[in-house]
Computed example of a mutant assay.
Amino acid sequence: MEPITEIYSYLKQPKEAFITMHQKPDGDALGSTLGLSLFLKKLGFRTHVISPTNWPAFLNWLPGCDQVLDYEANLDLTKKIISNCEYIFCLDFNVLSRTKNMESLLAEADGIKVLIDHHEQPQKESFNYGISNTNKSSTCEMVYDLIVDAGYAHLIDTEIATCLYTGMMTDTGSFRFPSTKASVHQAITHFKHLGLNHTAIHERIYDSFMESRLRFLGNALLNRMEVLYEFNTAIMAIPKSDLVKFSTKTGDTEGIVNYMLALQGIKFAAIVIDRDDSARKWSFRSKGKFDVNTFARKHFNGGGHKNAAGGATSDSLEETVANFKKVIREYVSELTEPYISEL
Rank of each mutant, 00 (worst) to 15 (best):
F216T: 03
L217I: 15
G218D: 07
G218F: 08
A220T: 12
L221I: 10
N223H: 11
L228K: 01
E230C: 03
F231Y: 15
F231D: 07
F231A: 10
N232C: 05
N232S: 12
T233F: 08
I235E: 01
M236E: 08
M236A: 11
M236C: 15
M236H: 06
M236N: 07
M236I: 14
A237C: 13
A237K: 01
P239K: 12
P239E: 09
P239Y: 12
P239F: 13
P239D: 11
S241D: 10
S241Q: 14
S241V: 10
S241A: 13
D242H: 03
D242N: 08
D242C: 07
L243F: 13
L243P: 05
V244N: 11
V244D: 13
K245V: 03
K245M: 12
K245Q: 14
F246C: 07
F246K: 04
F246Q: 06
F246T: 01
S247D: 13
S247K: 08
K249D: 01
K249P: 03
T250Y: 00
G251K: 04
D252L: 05
D252F: 04
E254G: 05
G255C: 09
N258W: 01
N258V: 00
Y259S: 08
Y259C: 04
M260G: 12
M260P: 10
M260Q: 12
M260V: 07
L261E: 07
L261I: 09
A262N: 11
A262Q: 10
A262D: 14
Q264T: 03
G265A: 08
K267I: 14
F268M: 10
A269E: 02
A269F: 00
A269H: 02
A269P: 03
A270W: 03
V272Y: 00
V272E: 02
I273E: 10
D276L: 12
S278R: 11
S278D: 15
K281S: 13
W282E: 01
R285T: 05
S286T: 00
S286K: 00
K287Q: 11
K287V: 02
G288Q: 07
G288F: 05
K289M: 11
K289Y: 09
K289H: 12
K289S: 15
F290P: 00
